[in-house]
Simulated assay, not measured.
Amino acid sequence: MMELSMLSVFGKQFIRSISTSACACGKKNFKKFPLYNKRGTRNFKEQQAKHPHPDVPIHTYGVRPTGYKGATSFVMIDELVPELVVPDLTGFKLKPYVSYRVPDIVQPPLTPEELFGAVYVKKITEDFKSGKLGPDNQPLEPSPEERLTPEVAKAKALAIKSDIV
């Protein structure tokens, strides 16, 4: 770096000037400036394709390789190639998207009375009309839901709730 000195009243005074030489004196630190696949000149890319430099990594942008580098070439492994399984939608009645113009459906949570009415009332009324209730209004032919103990029914309801959420 070149410095200018000037003589002043108080003695010798140093003034900084602009320097055009690099502070590394010609050494280049390429680790600071990563050259990924898209960066660099065409000549650099051709050179990297033929003889890759060990200090310049080949950036894959997060994509997993579908094989491995052999002694002379890249070896493909068929099991590593992703396979997209798409269902056949011929004759499918629904549209592939839901329009934003569909009105929002706001439904309050079910109360215990509504849940009881949705699950048990129909069976109880059928048993009552056909005379299949016992002396304590217990069903003579209970359904699988009526045979459940309270603990098992609660555990089953919580399992269904966790599957929905």
Rank of each mutant, 00 (worst) to 15 (best):
M1H: 14
E3R: 11
L4H: 08
S5Y: 14
S5R: 12
V9S: 10
G11P: 01
Q13E: 14
I15L: 07
I15T: 06
R16W: 04
S17G: 14
I18E: 14
S19P: 02
T20D: 08
A24R: 15
A24N: 10
C25L: 13
C25E: 15
K27L: 14
K27M: 12
N29R: 10
N29C: 12
K32E: 15
F33G: 03
F33Q: 01
P34Q: 02
N37A: 15
R39Q: 09
T41K: 01
R42G: 04
N43W: 10
F44L: 13
F44H: 07
K45E: 03
K45R: 15
E46Q: 13
Q47S: 06
Q47V: 08
A49V: 05
A49S: 12
K50S: 12
P52F: 06
P52L: 05
H53T: 09
D55E: 14
V56D: 00
P57A: 06
P57C: 04
V63F: 09
V63Q: 07
R64K: 10
P65N: 12
T66Y: 01
G67C: 03
G67S: 04
Y68F: 13
K69F: 09
K69M: 13
G70V: 00
G70T: 11
G70A: 02
A71M: 08
S73Y: 11
F74S: 03
F74Y: 12
V75H: 02
V75I: 11
I77N: 12
I77R: 05
D78V: 01
V81A: 09
V81G: 05
P82T: 07
E83V: 15
V85L: 12
D88I: 02
D88S: 07
D88H: 08
L89P: 00
G91D: 08
G91L: 01
K93V: 11
K93T: 10
L94V: 10
K95I: 05
P96G: 03
P96S: 13
V98M: 11
S99F: 07
Y100N: 08
V102Y: 02
P103K: 13
D104S: 04
I105K: 15
V106W: 00
V106N: 10
Q107Y: 03
P108V: 03
P108N: 11
T111F: 03
P112I: 03
E113H: 08
E114H: 07
L115A: 15
L115S: 07
V121K: 12
K123A: 10
I124M: 08
D127H: 11
F128N: 10
K129W: 07
S130M: 11
G131V: 03
K132A: 09
K132P: 02
L133W: 00
G134D: 09
D136Y: 10
Q138E: 13
Q138L: 10
P139I: 00
P139N: 07
L140M: 15
L140V: 14
L140F: 05
L140S: 12
S143K: 04
P144T: 13
E145Y: 06
E145R: 10
R147V: 04
L148G: 01
L148W: 00
P150R: 14
P150F: 06
V152C: 02
V152H: 01
A153L: 15
A153I: 05
A153W: 09
K154P: 00
K156C: 02
K156Y: 06
A159I: 05
I160N: 05
K161N: 11
D163R: 04
I164F: 03
V165I: 15
V165M: 07
V165S: 08
